[in-house]
Amino acid sequence: MLYAILCYHDEAEVDSWSKEKDDAVLTKRAQVTDPLAAQGKLGPVARLMPTTAATTVRSGREPLVIDGPFAETKEQLLGFYLVDCATLEEAIDVARGLGRDETGGFEIRPLRLFQPAAFPSPAFLE
């Protein structure tokens, strides 16, 4: 089963991280993701730009385009991991590992549909 592990954290706090702290968090998380990647269980990983860069489009008779995130919440969706786990237990373990010594939380959502990426490599990574 494919699971999406969605990262919900307080954006104000993440913005206050120094570069060193940010690097430390990514290094720590790599300890969890590297073994998964080696086993072929890690799908794409994405980090979203802050919600201040977000635009929301509300469907309706007149689609409404507004600034900012979809919903005002205390914790925002800041990124996600896709993992291939045999059981929910296993996915929970992965999320636990990712969140060690952190605040905020993770939501684990089983995937119903998965289409591999169509673009060879995103332009901004060049």
Binding site: D10, A12, E13, D15, S16, W17, K21, D101, E102, T103
Partner: peptide
């Protein structure tokens, strides 16, 4: 306690 300092700074 670094996380507390970060939380205090941002709050």
């Amino acid at each position: 306690l670094a996380w507390i300092n970060t939380a205090l700074t941002s709050a």
